[in-house]
């Protein structure tokens, strides 16, 4: 039983070029509802760009994106993004708003909740990430790990059907990584549909249902973690794994 109203996500034949730089060259990614797909690969392989194309922060040149089986390219992108939560490497909390207001603000403006209800829901979300007591301070007073947990709470408060994590632990001090990964694991096990771009091979192997290895804008290999990590088929993946493990 899922505690989230998760949807499936599918990317088909995504192409994207910035001028002559072809960043994505025919990417396919299929994430069934309630599963976690991790995307690994060297820097510059197009992983983060793929996330931004799938919630249309960047419009693809070609291909299709299906959320819950329906193409989203004709939908209003602002509405689409409310259905997909996104967590960034640099947290990107709003520094001029309190921790609680970082969450409540979007609930008021986008989900049109009345003020006290938005506040109550924000506190509830903060409770889930163990930071209710920080609701009234500015984000800059929190540690990186705490800020990232607030960012996750902010995304979850919108009740998304899918969550994107863009190297969510890369900017954290080593001792803070664990707490954020534990929270992400809880979400995955709670049945959230997740796409996780990560350098955390342990998380990728233990938590995700499928692993996709990207290099130079193409999917080189994709499959269950056991296959990808224990029986890599291609040279490129073997080389990558021997570099990072």
């Amino acid at each position: 039983m899922s505690q989230f109203s998760s949807g499936s996500l599918e990317a088909k034949g995504i192409h994207l070029a910035f001028g002559s730089n072809r960043v994505l060259r025919g990417i396919d990614l299929n994430v069934p509802a309630g599963t976690t797909a991790s995307v690994i690969g060297p820097s510059g392989s197009g992983k983060s760009t793929l996330l931004r194309v799938m919630n249309r922060l960047i419009e693809p040149d070609a291909g299709d994106i299906l959320l819950d089986g329906t193409s989203v390219l004709k939908e209003n992108p602002d509405i689409l993004r409310r259905r997909i939560g996104m967590v960034f490497q640099q947290f990107n909390l709003f520094p001029h708003k309190s921790v609680g207001e970082n969450i409540a603000f979007a609930l008021r403006k986008l989900r049109k909740l009345p003020k006290d209800q938005a506040r109550a829901e924000a506190l509830e979300q903060l409770d889930l990430v163990g930071l209710r007591h920080k609701a009234d301070v500015r984000p800059s007073t929190l540690s990186g790990g705490q800020q990232q947990r607030v960012a996750i709470a902010r995304a979850l408060a919108m009740k998304p059907e899918v969550m994107f994590f863009d190297e969510a632990t890369s900017a954290l001090d080593p001792e803070l990584v664990k707490g954020v990964l534990a929270l992400m694991t809880d979400l995955a096990q709670g049945g959230m549909t997740m796409v996780v771009v990560t350098h955390e091979m342990g998380f990728s192997r233990n938590v995700s249902d499928t692993v996709t290895f990207m290099d130079a804008g193409v999917v080189v290999e994709s499959g269950p973690p056991g296959q990808i990590f224990d029986a890599p088929q291609t040279d490129r993946l073997q080389r990558f794994l021997s570099d990072v493990l």
């Binding site: 602002d78 409310r82 960034f88 990107n92 709003f94 986008l110 919108m158």
Partner: peptide
Amino acid sequence: DKGQLEAARALGFGYGPSMRMVVVPQ
């Protein structure tokens, strides 16, 4: 920081509201 606009847009704010409520005040 560009991440501020990106975060606001990722939440579902349009360009105008993102600028007005998040980027410009900062």
